[in-house]
Simulated assay, not measured.
Amino acid sequence: MAPSAISSLVASTSKVEVAKQPEKHVHGAQDKTPLEAISHEPTGIVHPGIPTFSSHAEHRRHILIHTAAVFRDFSRKGFTEGMSGHISVRDPEFPHYIWMNPLGKHFGLMTAGDLICLDVNNGKVVGGNRSRTANSAGFFIHSEIHKARPDVHAVCHSHTMAGRAWSSFATGIDMLNQDVCYLYGAVAVYAEYGGIVFASEEGKNIARSLGDKNKVAILMNHGLLSTGSTVDEAGFLFGLLDRSCAIQLQVEAAMAGNSKLVKHIVADEEAAYNFKMANEKNGLYAEAQPDLDYEFAMAGPGVIERGVDDMKIDHGL
């Protein structure tokens, strides 16, 4: 290649590298809901959000089936560790009752008929599966969050690889990319560790650290926790938080000893805009559906739903 051609190539490349980003970004769709904004307008079709139900029984059936599907999604993503990990969802008719997974049931085998209904105030079994016990540590954590946060309808907690690794630093996560901005200003850090949770006091501490507005929490030396207005939302946010911890670990490792790398964090204005346009209950419900649809397809017809028609609430009688 001629020297002049090489010089021309270098100059062209240099221009691309030093090009400045616009100082002011034009945001769109502020007058639309997140699902209206993401749905391509000429089609006239708006992607569906949270469905509505004609009865508590119909709503409960949907919740239990989707909770089992979220467990299976967690299994596929590697969020299992022996008997650890639990998901709770508030009953649609009795807000002081929560449905949880039985102790020792593999997430990848969960069905709607496996779930246990518990009273958050005293731990009494009030319905559902009575053939197995619940996770005591899970109840102490989840019950305190449900009591402290009436707006929270589902809570997910598990001990993931990336979550446990990043939790050892007892710090939050940077807004390193578009997706993590779904959690902008909504990440709590519980910077203490009180051992395995076998008392309500530690559950209260975790609930207190979550605060009254945060969506997710990083629990030092322990793992991750997410909340949501649906189990679908809580499950999606949990996976997002875990992936964000993994990305943070990769970025920090890449920067270690390399002074040429500069970490660029999304500006507050853009992060806040992303949060506004993405962190909404209908949008987050919709975000979860592709993975749940996959679980229903992989399990086969009627498998995840198995036993749901036997799930009754008897108030512990």
Rank of each mutant, 00 (worst) to 15 (best):
S7R: 05
S8R: 10
S8D: 08
E17L: 15
K20Q: 12
Q21R: 11
V26D: 12
H27C: 04
K32T: 02
T33G: 09
P34F: 14
E36C: 08
I38A: 09
H40W: 12
T43F: 06
G44S: 10
I45W: 14
H47C: 13
I50Q: 07
F53L: 12
S54M: 02
A57T: 06
R60D: 09
R60F: 07
A68E: 01
V70A: 00
R72N: 01
R72A: 02
D73F: 11
S75H: 13
H86L: 13
I98V: 05
M100R: 04
P102K: 06
L103G: 07
F107G: 08
A112W: 03
A112V: 04
G113E: 01
C117Y: 03
L118W: 06
G138L: 05
H142D: 00
H146D: 03
A148M: 08
A148C: 06
H157K: 05
M161T: 05
A162C: 06
S167M: 03
S168A: 08
T171M: 07
T171W: 01
Q178A: 12
C181K: 07
V187D: 02
Y190Q: 06
S200T: 03
S200G: 01
S200Q: 03
N205V: 04
A207P: 01
D212G: 04
D212T: 11
D212A: 03
K213A: 14
N214F: 08
A217L: 03
N221Q: 04
H222C: 12
H222N: 14
V231N: 05
F238N: 00
R243Y: 12
A256D: 13
S259W: 01
I265M: 08
A272R: 07
F275Q: 13
K281N: 04
G283P: 09
Y285N: 14
Y285K: 12
A286V: 04
L292Q: 07
L292I: 10
Y294Q: 11
Y294A: 15
G302M: 15
V303A: 10
G307K: 11
